[in-house]
Every structure is written in C-alpha cells, then in structure tokens.
C-alpha cells in the first residue's frame, strides 16, 4: 500500500513483495534512533542479566589464575556473515580483558579475511590497553577452509595446549558438538554463542554457558556497558513488541475467518 503510494507519487521503482519488510525496517530504524537519542540525553537502560556474559570475566580470570591460554573461535562462516561480525565485536571485548590480565589469547580462523580482521581487532585491543608489546600476531592464525580439517586442527590445539577457557562464538555446523565435547573433555570452561538453531542443543549440553540466538548479537552491547550501544537492545525489544502485536492481531483476525491481514502482509493463505 505504502509502496504503491511511493510508486505513484515519486515514480520510485520498488520491488514487489518487499513492502512489509520495508515497513518493519522503517519502524525499527525509528526506534533505534529514538532510544539512541534518549541514551545520548543521559537515559540509562536496564537489561536483563545474561549468565553467559556475566561469566566472561570469570572465565578469563580463571585462565589467568591457572596460567593457561584462552581459545576463541569465530565459527565457520566468512566475514560477510552477520554472526561472524557479532563474534568479532565480542572478540574485541575479550581481547581487551585478556590484554589487561596478560593472558594468552589464541584465535584459530576458518577464513583468511576473518583472520586478518581478528588480528587487527586483537592488536588494537592490546594497543588500547597499553599492552601492545604482549601482542603475538602468530596466536591469531589461519587453519583451513575445510570443515572437518578445521575441526581436527582446533581439537588438536585444544588437546595439546589445554586452554582453561574456550569461546565458541559465531555460526557453526556439524562440528559444534565435536569442538564442544573436546573442550569439555579437557576441563575448559566453555562459553558458546550461536544463532544456528540446529546446533544450539549441542552447545547447551556440552558448554558451561550458551548464548542463545539473539544473545549473541546482544553480547557486544552487554559487555560494553555503553548506553549508546545498549539502546539498540531496546530497539530490539520494541521490534519484539511489534511482532507480538502483529501475531496477536493476525491470530484474532484469522480465527475470525478473515484473510485480509495475511494478504496485507503478503503471506500466502
């Protein structure tokens, strides 16, 4: 409807069937800037406790006390995957804390671009902590882009180096359980996070803490404790509330026998 209006008024060529997504996107962007503006005016936002993220400091501290390393993997996707980007933002926070405590951080990479990004992120984190001399570029290394060769190599690192803490953050496939169980067998404290729904049960069973779905994306904001970034979580909550309303309205209208609501959203009936 909106798109037809735009099309008629401004001769904008709009792709068919993208209306509902565009509508939600506009509302989401508006909510994002509304909460960002509130944060900049000094508002503070309360967010629920996420055990897995509260345990990050404890996990890094444990590795420091034991004099062992931390292993961080960004998953098996490339830099164009949003879960990998979310993982890299968490890596930055973890690297800063590892640098602060002088704990060795190893990042075996599946993708060469992700490796380059990880190296730069970790180096910058060490620089910000004034510990650039402790930064070892060789600890962020490329392994292979073969799924099970990568798994074997990471398992090798786990068994040989026996890190005290393992972070499995990003998108994973069938190797999730192999990595998590190996980490479990060496007694490492494991914090996993993924948006791969099919792999979540494996992480929940084998890891000490698991960030489920959206928690992976909230992690960076949560760990930053920066109101500006946390404000984006409020926009997410707004998005959820909006979807709740749509679901409720859709259910009521559909149960009443009308298909208009579904047609409006472009869904097939």
């Amino acid at each position: 409807m909106i798109f037809n209006f735009l099309n008629l008024m401004f001769q904008i060529q709009i792709k068919e069937g993208t209306g509902p997504v565009f509508f939600v996107l506009v509302l989401f962007v508006a909510a994002l800037f509304f909460f960002l503006d509130k944060a900049r005016k000094g508002a503070t936002f309360k967010i629920r406790k996420i055990a897995g993220l509260d345990a990050v400091n404890e996990a890094i501290g444990r590795a420091t006390e034991m004099g062992k390393s931390i292993l961080y993997t960004t998953g098996l996707e490339t830099a164009s995957h949003i879960a990998t980007i979310a993982s890299l933002t968490i890596l930055s926070r973890v690297a800063k804390r590892a640098a602060r405590y002088g704990t060795r951080l190893q990042v075996p990479s599946f993708d060469p671009i992700v490796m380059s990004l990880s190296q730069e992120i970790v180096r910058e984190s060490y620089l910000e902590e004034g510990m650039v001399d402790s930064f070892k570029g060789d600890d962020i290394f490329y392994l292979t882009q073969e799924q099970f060769a990568y798994t074997a190599a990471v398992e090798g690192v786990l068994v040989r180096e026996k890190p005290a803490t393992v972070f499995l953050m990003g998108y994973f496939y069938a190797e999730s359980l192999l990595l998590a169980e190996t980490g479990n067998s060496i007694g490492a404290i494991q914090i996993a996070g993924t948006d791969a729904v099919t792999q979540l049960p494996f992480f929940i069973v084998s890891c000490d803490y698991t960030l489920i779905g959206e928690e992976l994306y909230a992690a960076s904001a949560y760990l930053s404790e920066d109101s500006n970034i946390i404000s984006s979580l409020k926009a997410q909550d707004f998005g959820k509330a909006l979807l709740w309303i749509f679901l409720l309205l859709g259910s009521i209208v559909t149960f009443a026998g009308s298909t208009k609501f579904l047609s409006l959203l472009g869904a097939s009936t």
Binding site: I82, S92, R93, E124, L223, S232
Partner: peptide, 26 residues
C-alpha cells in the same frame, strides 16, 4: 535472531558499533 541481525547490521551501517574496526568505546 532476525531482530538481532537487523540491529547489528544497522549499528554497523550507522557507525554506532565500531568494535569490528579494532577500536572500541569501552
């Protein structure tokens, strides 16, 4: 997950989240 993806993408596009560049706001 969908909302989280959208939020992360927008944070990066609008420069709210900069940690992926190496620097951070912490």
């Amino acid at each position: 997950v969908g909302l989280g993806m959208m939020s992360t993408a927008l944070k990066i596009i609008f420069g709210i989240e900069k940690t992926y560049l190496g620097g951070s706001e912490e």
